[in-house]
Design a protein around this nucleic acid. Sequence first.
RNA 1: GCGCUCUUAGCUCAGCAGGAUAGAGCAACAGCCUUCUAAGCUGUGGGUCGGGCGUUCGAAUCGCCCAGAGCGCGCCA
Length: 583
Amino acid sequence: MNLSFETELNNLLESIFQKLNLETKYANVKASDRPDLSDFQCNGALALAKTLHKNPREIAAMIAENLQNCAGIDSVSVDGPGFINIKLTNQAIAENMDKISADARLGCGLVDDPHREVLDYGGPNVAKEMHVGHLRSGVIGEAIQRIERFVGNEVTSDVHLGDWGTPMGMILAEIICCDGNLDKVESYNIAQITEFYKKANIRCKEDEKARETARKITAALQDGDPVLRKAWEHLRSESVKAVEENYQKLDVHFDLWWGESDAHQTCGEIVALARRLGIAQLDEGAEIIRLEEGNKPKPPVILVKSDGGYTYHTTDLATIKMRVDQLNAQEIVYFTDNRQSLHFEQVFEGAEKLKIAPHVKLQHIVFGTVNGADGKPFKTRDGGVMNLETLIEISKEKVRQSLPKAGEVEGYGAAEIEKLVEQIAVAAIKFQDLKNTIASGYVFELEDFAKFEGKTGPYIQYAVARINSILRKAKAANVCEGNVMLSMPEERVLALKLAQVHNVVMRAHSEKEPSIIADYAYTLAQVFSSFYNVCSIMNAGSEILASSRLRLARLVRDVLILMLYLLGIEAPEVMLKAENKGE
RNA sequence: GCGCUCUUAGCUCAGCAGGAUAGAGCAACAGCCUUCUAAGCUGUGGGUCGGGCGUUCGAAUCGCCCAGAGCGCGCCA
């Protein structure tokens, strides 16, 4: 059963196009750009006119004629150069609302061909403090994870911890340099470890000898030196704890906490495989795979450095192999910022040459960087960059001020208030990020992350809370939900918006673009607010109308909660307000 | 030097498998709480869609050129 008007109309048009011998790829509708003229429009006639050398209006008229008497269609007209405008009957829309309400998935379908996918996002590094630049990958990845699961795919998410490269050697070298040995390592907490890393960074930047030492220690660690290994394990576990805590706050989750170190074993296999296939070459002391250059130069994959260590090419290739062999991945999707585009091009091409992932779709979803006011990406090293915890705390403090104090509202003690603070603050932060299209970066502005008005997460939560409040009142007054009927234009607009949910989710899924959902959730909340302002529910005038609006409102709430869920955002039952707020 | 991405309202961004009056939010201004939570609603002002040329009946959207910005270009990840 299909509950989406768009899909239904597309199917209908397809059969009409077939009947008329027209190319069916143009048989589709979209929500109308001119809501004053129609609910849906089809531009197919305009596109067809070119190839058929016919007047677009003529073609449109032919199509329109066949649509005329179809079920649920109120009117069809051909306007302008050849737009087909379709208006649905109120009855069809109302019935659709009833059906969606009764559906556990709110009218959202599943993918036809569910498959196993591995999502690689997050990618934090050991001992590096998480800052606002790390926000995107985790938040976007979490949203995609939820969307993919919701449409029926089997998802395994992997954080792909950066725990095995030169930075590890740098920290260990720094500790040895300061302490003389690694005896005290196990007493260091994450803050201290981070300090060592910062110092190591500075030292290695200015001192070639320090870099050399770090490289040697890295190599020894990777070679299995037991003392280094033991120290490293502590660094890793402390970092993982800190990272987990951060992600926990943002409600970002991973199935696997594999790191680059877990791929180490397999790196050897990759190199062996490359040699066996005869695609490994020695070049300036390093072992590489040359890639097709075509008309533009492309640097080779470096499997083994001249010092014998592996590179992130090798670990990424090894990781692909592991995900294919052990997890049976049919699709692997990476979420990183655009600076790594070339890297993944190289890795994917390397994987193809090594034949380690046949028939596996490898995809790199590129997102824009979070930039500072200067338009340049935030960086850890130039100090003073706001870390994630501070950002969350600032947002929470702002929320706290707008909420009543513990005990001021019955049933809301310190714990309940603090829970609300968290839910709202995290919503503000995550939505601020997710409302942007993935591909484009955005300028980080602190005030925006603590804003609750306009296109923000809390705005949507607020709409949900208002509906919850109405539902409580309705229950107390014994008003029940009934069939939907459309009496006011605001109700019609709202219902049509609700009917889009399936297509929105499917688009967000196929484009791997959470902002589509964010945008829809916002628009739906907006349309609801307009409806709310004009159409009283508790004082609707008649019981039938009240019960119809009640159902509509509850449906809005359910859809909003689902959309927020897919974005990784919670919807609190209530949004309390401080007494003298807003003066 | 080469490659990738980008340039839309004062600011931050949508729109871009070509199409009917280029949309939001913020900021500004003017209204709306004795009525379901004003974290809200309604309205106003604000754009030669970086510039130019081209393809087309039709371009913010496609192609070429130019200008500007960011990122990336074998042994850091």
